[in-house]
């Protein structure tokens, strides 16, 4: 009988003593097992309570009073009724919608266009950080740079002058639309990269086979983008634009540094209005009421947009 390596090995394994664990098996008490998920989220919940929920509830409470430093006088809904008749409030709301809306549309359009041309470029992966640069700067520093470029340093006027497009200096703060434009330019410059990077990631995450199938079906690149890539990106676009939109409604830094709401309140956004009411005129209750209204409005709009987008995305 020829002996052979494999079956000898098999017999050897079969004859060896089986290995059994010697330590007692570890057990977890049912109570701990039940509490475990809550323990895991506890730090985050505690953080949220302190940072978000408490100030939020405090603002709602304060909005029911007329507050002059330490003297709180019960006002009920008076703050709210006054605000709803305040022309400045409505103007600030309008300005926020105009500046934010134009800025958001521009950012989305530019980011989508750039993403469409760039996502197939392998360099994008390595160079992402470069595209992110504007986002990484401190917002107030960026605001000061733009303030220098537009107003104090007159860099932009000089550049346009040298190109022969204008003569002399432009008074950017002298016109409603020019001053709004400076805010829009600053915001677009700083935040387009955020949308760009998300859109590139969404496009790169799409199944390449689908693109190839469309190619063989006879579609050109623009048609593939319009008919297939863009509809597939829809949920991502909605989320990114909603995030950006929420952020834009609270636009403050650029307004504070660059325009201070001039000319004639044409660039006063909601945040700046609230700041002015609270910290310049010390109407804390009034400012709180305005911020509560703003919060409610933002939640309603964001909810509607996201719900709609995701609902019609399925079927």
């Amino acid at each position: 009988m020829p002996t052979d390596a494999p079956s000898v090995l098999a017999k050897g394994v079969a004859q060896a003593a089986p290995i059994r664990p010697t330590q007692p098996r570890r057990r977890r008490s049912p109570a701990l097992r039940k509490a475990f998920p809550y323990l895991l989220v506890a730090p985050a919940v505690a953080y949220l309570l302190v940072i978000t929920l408490y100030p939020g509830l405090f603002a709602i409470y304060q909005s029911l009073f007329v507050v002059k430093f330490l003297t709180w006088t019960w006002a009920g809904a008076d703050n709210y009724t006054t605000i709803l008749q305040d022309r400045e409030f409505w103007a600030a709301l309008g300005n926020t919608a105009i500046i934010g809306g134009i800025s958001l549309c521009l950012q989305t359009a530019i980011a989508l266009t750039l993403a469409y041309f760039a996502y197939r470029d392998p360099l994008i992966r390595g160079w992402r950080i470069v595209y992110l640069m504007p986002m990484l700067f401190m917002p107030s520093a960026v605001a000061f740079i733009w303030k220098l470029a537009f107003n104090d340093g007159r860099v932009i006027s000089d550049l346009l002058g040298r190109l022969g497009l204008i003569e002399g200096n432009v008074d950017w703060l002298g016109s409603i639309w020019l001053s709004r434009m400076t805010l829009i330019v600053a915001d677009v410059w700083q935040w387009t990269p955020f949308l760009f990077i998300i859109f590139v990631a969404a496009l790169q995450g799409q199944d390449q086979e689908i693109e190839e199938a469309a190619r063989l079906d006879g579609a050109s690149w623009p048609k593939i983008f319009w008919n297939i890539s863009l509809p597939m990106m829809r949920p991502v676009i909605v989320v990114a634009v909603t995030l950006r939109g929420i952020d834009i409604t609270t636009m403050f830094t650029n307004v504070f540094v660059m325009t201070q709401g001039t000319p004639g309140g044409a660039t006063e956004t909601m945040s700046y209005f609230i700041y002015r009411q609270g910290f310049r005129m010390f109407n804390f209750g009034y400012a709180s009421a305005a911020s509560v209204l703003m919060l409610i409005l933002t939640i309603i709009i964001a909810q509607t947009v996201v719900k709609r987008a995701f609902h019609s995305g399925k079927s």
Binding site: I210, A213, R215, L216, A219, I228
Partner: peptide, 27 residues
């Protein structure tokens, strides 16, 4: 590729998820 008049069936189907089957075949 789009002018070669070849049709391809992929391992992962590569259907367009945003379109109905009718629109997929029509594409």
């Amino acid at each position: 590729a789009r002018d070669r008049d070849v049709a391809m069936v992929f391992q992962g189907y590569a259907l367009y998820p945003n379109m109905s089957i009718y629109e997929n075949i029509r594409f």
